[in-house]
């Protein structure tokens, strides 16, 4: 290539084009090859056949525990592709600050309170349901903790009451979760509901979560508590 000022660095039409065109050809195909390789890797499910790796030759599901992979070649097994991930919050870290209700890009939030019946004590005096110090256990507004009245209380048998959450009313503020966790069995948990979540690339709640409780989890285990 000549650096002539006035005439000869030609555009796309003229004679020295062939040289230019040749360079372009080379670079183009190098780039295409790289992109192709990169994309190809996304298709290939990684198998851990790395010398020194934990499960020699066995598929290790995209190596979830690469941190533990002792292979000096672990960088080869960067878990590319194959795993779909979604945002979820870890109830063990959550401090129920209430930002799930306000920070979500959706209104109302995609975070809702989920009730784990198998952990519930079915208490007559439910700490997640009643305001502290409530004496008359009725479902009147002055007694309820839930700001939207999303928790339903149903009599089962003495002294047990069943509590269910109306997800269409729940705004994910976590008030009930806080008190249930502090005084009760902790059977109420905040979780991102995946029928609502739009799975933003950068989750707005995660960004603002003071406890760093949000993380991407594999889509096939999208809830961070046992469902049964």
């Amino acid at each position: 290539m000549r650096f002539t000022m006035d005439t000869d660095i030609r555009g796309y039409g003229e004679k020295p084009k062939s040289r230019r065109e040749f360079f372009r050809f080379i670079i183009r195909w190098i780039l295409l090859l790289l992109l192709g390789l990169f994309g190809g890797m996304a298709f290939v499910r990684r198998r851990c056949s790395l010398p020194g790796g934990p499960g020699n030759g066995k598929a290790c599901g995209g190596c979830p525990s690469l941190a533990k992979c002792k292979s000096p070649y672990s960088w080869l097994a960067k878990p590319l592709g194959s795993r779909r991930t979604v945002w979820q919050l870890d109830p063990a870290k959550c401090i129920q600050c209430g930002r799930c209700a306000t920070e979500c890009v959706l209104q109302p939030s995609a975070v809702k309170c989920i009730h784990r019946f198998d952990m519930c004590g079915y208490c007559k005096l439910c700490f997640g349901y009643f305001q502290p110090g409530t004496s008359v256990l009725t479902s009147a507004a002055e007694n309820q903790i839930c700001p939207t009245g999303a928790i339903r209380r149903k009599y089962i048998e003495e002294p047990y009451y069943e509590y269910t959450i109306d997800l269409s009313l729940c705004i994910g503020c976590g008030k009930c979760v806080k008190t249930c966790g502090a005084f009760g069995n902790g059977s109420l948990k905040l979780q991102v509901c995946h029928d609502l979540c739009v799975n933003c690339n950068e989750c707005s709640i995660a960004r603002n979560c003071p406890a760093g409780a949000y993380s991407r989890v594999p889509a096939d285990e999208a809830y961070l508590f046992k469902t049964s």
Partner: peptide
């Protein structure tokens, strides 16, 4: 209004609730 009116912290209701505690 939606952002403001999140029925999370309603000071008026809280006040009334405290009042109710003294006078159940």
């Amino acid at each position: 209004t939606v952002r403001m009116s999140l029925p999370l912290d309603m000071p008026e209701i809280e006040q009334l609730r405290t009042a109710l505690k003294d006078n159940p």
